[in-house]
């Protein structure tokens, strides 16, 4: 075919509909904002029950993780994410969904090589690069503090 890949790339771009950015962003904003607001409500609640700031923060994270994984199990979190995109993916609930989804999907391959090995298929990189960058920060901090 006497057409360069670049020319074809231009043709493909023209033929391919774009994502609806504005409407996607509005949905991401509202849903992501609501999840965070709910986190704030939990935070105030744990505070009122006598938990300190740090403890409340941890409890909020654990509660949100629990709820997201429950929603993943009953097959509702992917519906939310389809609607809200990053609004459901970026909060800690999205991380929890990324851990639970492969755990459930790969149970057919067994509890060791399926659930155990595949659990961090998507979220593993978050832990790896989060830990590595925390070490970089720690190293710098050690010398400059």
């Amino acid at each position: 075919m006497n057409m360069s890949k670049k020319e074809y790339g231009e043709m493909v771009k023209k033929a391919s509909p774009n994502s609806r950015l504005v409407s996607n962003c509005v949905k991401a904003f509202v849903v992501g904002g609501l999840i965070c607001t709910f986190g704030q409500v939990l935070y105030a609640m744990f505070g009122a029950l006598g938990a300190g700031r740090e403890m409340s923060g941890t409890l909020v994270a654990v509660s949100l993780i629990f709820l997201a994984i429950l929603a993943t199990g009953i097959g509702k979190y992917d519906d939310l994410a389809k609607f809200a995109g990053a609004g459901a993916g970026v909060p800690i609930t999205g991380f929890a969904n990324a851990v639970a989804a492969p755990a459930i999907e790969f149970k057919k391959e067994g509890y060791v090589m399926g659930v155990g090995a595949k659990m961090f298929l998507i979220a593993g990189p978050v832990i790896v690069y989060g830990t590595l960058s925390s070490m970089v920060v720690g190293l710098i901090y050690y010398f400059v503090r």
């Binding site: 774009n18 994502s19 979190y77 939310l80 389809k82 969904n97 990324a98 989804a101 492969p102 999907e105």
Partner: peptide, 12 residues
């Protein structure tokens, strides 16, 4: 991705 993982499918 696993089916329960939430993601959006692009229009293409």
């Amino acid at each position: 991705f696993p089916l329960e993982f939430g993601s959006q499918r692009p229009p293409t």
